[in-house]
Design a protein around this nucleic acid. Structure first.
Lengths: 165, 165
DNA sequence: ATGCATCCGTTGACACATCAAGGAGCAGAC
DNA sequence: GTCTGCTCCTTGATGTGTCAACGGATGCAT
């Protein structure tokens, strides 16, 4: 086997190095993927424990309850979720009786979305649970630190927009 | 969770935010989900531009090239990826001639994984591209800030382990 | 050696993510 | 009018993420 040439040199930015136990903690993309996965798992587990909602379903309900959106497009713009997926989730939620979808009289392309009474009851029941979870997650972090965290995530988000590598 | 209405901090890099200010962007879980999605999209786009690899395929190759793992289980432990998913990706990579899988003579449950010469050539070609991307992402952040970010992510990760809500 | 817990990897099932194509409605230009 | 281009939403295709069940292999205790 003539693989001597493939003796890769160590390098601070070498992806291969990020798997070394000593360095794995220092890579942002790597860490974020792991933390994100855990947050998703936690959210899904909590919802499963207290309802039959999936994470996406809950997000849709919460966004509608917030009063900041009333159509699929505005909901997607707000959350960054994909139109297609949200559309599918909405048909579920409507058939489950949690969300009401009525034709927008002023624009027949659009639909006015709102929670049903049942959806609102569910929201009111789940909300405090998710709030306490949120408090637990951010509990160890001061407001100032939280602002810094969000600001840095914003910078990473901007860096992630570049595609010309 | 979604009803905090104070103190909106404009994100100059996000048009949607300026059009319709909202508080959703100030929640860590939502923000991380969005940033993570963008990072994934960026990685996938870069790989598509320079190869036919998917993000997961690249990660598997990079992990194998690192020399820190040589079986499915160790690979999964290192990366946190799901063994089922990695198993499927490996069969693809083997049939594409990038990875070699041989029975472990000392433990017939396990398989010895390694990159083929072709896989190594591909790795050497893609690595510098991904390295410059990594540098671009972390270049926006100073070392001190990076330490703070990772430390906070660590705290969030710990908080995400709790399930009894 | 026999039972048994455990580990390795595969597979199935399902939810979620992303992208693209397309129908229907609307609005402006002509 | 009607052409054109845009928006709202649906649907399909494909890839990714997560969980669970399974069979084979191993090691250990009895």
């Amino acid at each position: 086997m003539l693989t001597m040439k493939n003796n890769h040199m160590p390098d601070e930015n070498n992806i291969a190095d990020m798997v070394r136990p000593t360095e794995v903690k220092h890579f942002v993309t790597y860490t974020m993927a792991r933390v994100q996965a855990k947050l998703n798992a936690q959210g899904a587990a909590i919802l499963k424990r207290h309802s039959k909602l999936s994470l996406v379903q809950w997000r849709v309900i919460a966004l509608l309850a917030s009063g900041n959106c009333d159509s699929l497009t505005t909901l997607c713009r707000l959350s960054g979720m994909d139109k297609g997926q949200v559309s599918r989730k909405l048909t579920q939620l409507v058939s489950d009786g949690l969300v009401r979808s009525r034709l927008d009289e002023e624009d027949h392309r659009s639909q006015k979305l709102s929670l049903t009474d049942e959806g609102l009851v569910l929201y009111d029941r789940i909300l405090p649970i998710m709030r306490s979870r949120q408090a637990h997650i951010t509990g160890e972090i001061s407001q100032d630190e939280l602002a810094i965290l969000l600001e840095m995530l914003g910078r990473i988000e901007t860096a992630a927009d570049r595609r010309d590598f």
